[in-house]
């Protein structure tokens, strides 16, 4: 048996995009293979070793009773548990059901919904177990992913910025799409990490990395979103990949109050 630290990559409710980011590392993947023993990574190999693990990278959110059991077990056999991506960190796009009646969704999607076992919510890993580090992004950024892995291998704090998307945007010389084109953009309240890609292609930021460390949601809505769209549309803008992160959820419910279900949402605003 290798004496290298044992790495596991484990999936919950997700699209696999964040795991693919790890596979996309290519050159660095070989170096990673020398720095850790990849014990469990179903996306890459069908040879799955049991725990314990030194580092568990967790993709996806908790949406089924079975998920709840699996995450508790994984936590108990992992020294360090790191969530990767918007699903694991804030519930993902599937957390839209948290704002609505999940039974209605099931009826619309499945021919025989009675065979589906699911929770009424999609929740982040941190609502179930202690998480050592949450890596943001939909998907996560390759450079940040490697930074976090090697920081834990070396026992230092990972360097991932909590600044707004605007700053890398300006460093790369992109002209502000809000000021020049009046395009709605979540950049000023979204955490950087993606390299500020969308504004460089004349698109507003979609908020894939969730809220920045300092946000002013009502000012963004009033001054950047609402001049270009209805309050309902603005609420939909915020209710996407990170829609269930508390900062985005609270503002989206203010703009677009819940109407579909009796579900109580901790950020309030349930109108029925």
């Amino acid at each position: 048996m290798s004496k290298l630290p044992r790495l596991a990559v484990v999936k919950f409710a997700s699209c696999d995009g964040c795991q693919l980011t790890l596979l996309d590392c290519e050159d660095e993947l070989l170096a990673l293979g020398e720095a850790v023993h990849i014990a469990h990574f179903a996306e890459a190999s069908s040879q799955l070793e049991e725990g314990p693990y030194d580092i568990a990278l967790v993709e996806g959110s908790i949406t089924t009773p079975h998920d709840v059991e699996r995450i508790l077990l994984l936590r108990s056999i992992s020294r360090v548990l790191i969530t990767i991506g918007a699903c694991a960190t804030s519930g993902g796009i599937q957390a839209l059901k948290n704002f609505a009646d999940h039974q209605e969704f099931m009826k619309a999607v499945y021919a025989r919904p009675e065979f589906i076992q699911t929770l009424s919510t999609s929740t982040p890993i941190s609502q179930h177990v202690k998480v050592d580090f949450e890596l943001r992004g939909c998907p996560v950024d390759k450079v940040q992913l490697l930074e976090v892995i090697q920081a834990y291998l070396r026992g230092v704090r990972p360097k991932t910025s909590s600044e707004s998307v605007c700053q890398p945007c300006k460093r790369r010389g992109t002209v502000c799409v809000v000021v020049v084109q009046g395009i709605p953009c979540l950049g000023p309240i979204t955490q950087s990490g993606c390299g500020s890609i969308c504004p460089a292609f004349d698109r507003g930021c979609y908020g894939c990395f969730g809220p920045a460390a300092a946000t002013n949601m009502t000012s963004l809505s009033d001054n950047v979103l609402l001049p270009n769209m209805s309050p309902t549309e603005a609420g939909k803008w915020l209710r996407s990949f990170n829609g269930y992160s508390p900062v985005f959820a609270e503002e989206s419910v203010r703009l677009w109050p819940l109407t579909l279900s009796n579900k109580s949402h901790k950020e309030g605003g349930d109108t029925k």
Partner: peptide, 14 residues
């Protein structure tokens, strides 16, 4: 001012 300011740092970048 803070009620309007997004703390986005655009002013300092430009």
């Amino acid at each position: 001012v803070a009620e309007r300011c997004l703390s986005c740092a655009n002013c300092t970048m430009v």
